[in-house]
């Protein structure tokens, strides 16, 4: 475990806590894409199949349970919570995310490390995580103004992936046989998707203005 990976996991955790804070504090999920949250729940469920079979460390197991539990709780909240679900902007959350699931699964069947059930699902979860933010970014552009906590949520999600890229660079130079092409390439694509959001986030922060994304 290196500092970049720990920082990445912590910013990932913070992004989830910020989202939970927004939903519970404001009793509202306006501006949040349910589709992105469903994709994240699918990412964690298909990636952490080894939760019950391979024990790596307490930290690893606890974080997997936290990620699975929180993503399912957020999806449940946005679908079932009698107050929160009323604030879901269904008409703004129109990205056809089933295409993302189909495309990433097709890619996972073509590009994988080993042709086994778990490895295919692992590759699928890696590819799906790279594009899972798209419905959320599209929804932010549709809704124009981004509320403060939602902006922070997306920012921390992007920061988590940026730290992971530093982690892979660090491991590449310090560990003899570290090659994770699938995770690295997919992680680069994922971080690139945040690039324009980071740009507008930085501009709004510099001008101390409200974050506005061009439609």
């Amino acid at each position: 475990m290196n500092i970049f990976r720990l920082a990445g996991d912590m910013t990932h955790l913070i992004s989830i806590l910020v989202l939970l804070l927004k939903i519970y504090a404001t009793k509202s999920c306006s501006g949040i894409s349910l589709k992105t949250q469903e994709l994240y729940a699918l990412v964690f469920l298909t990636r952490y199949l080894d939760l019950l079979t391979d024990f790596i460390s307490i930290y690893n197991t606890v974080m997997k349970l936290v990620f699975i539990g929180s993503s399912l709780a957020i999806v449940w909240c946005m679908r079932r919570h009698r107050v929160v679900r009323r604030s879901y902007d269904k008409e703004l959350d129109t990205f056809r995310h089933y295409f993302l699931i189909a495309a990433t699964f097709a890619l996972a069947v073509l590009v994988y490390e080993k042709f086994t059930f778990r490895e295919i699902l692992w590759a699928f979860s890696i590819y799906l995580e790279a594009v899972a933010i798209l419905p959320q970014l599209v929804m932010l552009q549709r809704s124009g103004n981004v509320d403060n906590l939602t902006g922070k949520y997306v920012f921390f999600l992007g920061a988590y992936r940026a730290f992971y890229i530093l982690n892979w660079i660090y491991r590449y130079f310090t560990e003899a046989r570290f090659t994770r092409w699938i995770a690295c390439v997919s992680g680069l694509v994922q971080t690139a998707l945040y690039a324009d959001f980071f740009y507008y986030y930085f501009i709004s922060w510099k001008n101390n203005a409200k974050l506005k994304l061009p439609a």
């Binding site: 990932h12 790596i56 490390e113 992971y164 982690n167 570290f178 994770r180």
Partner: peptide
Amino acid sequence: ALNGQTKDEL
């Protein structure tokens, strides 16, 4: 190369 390495990242 990877097979020896478990998936230790989240």
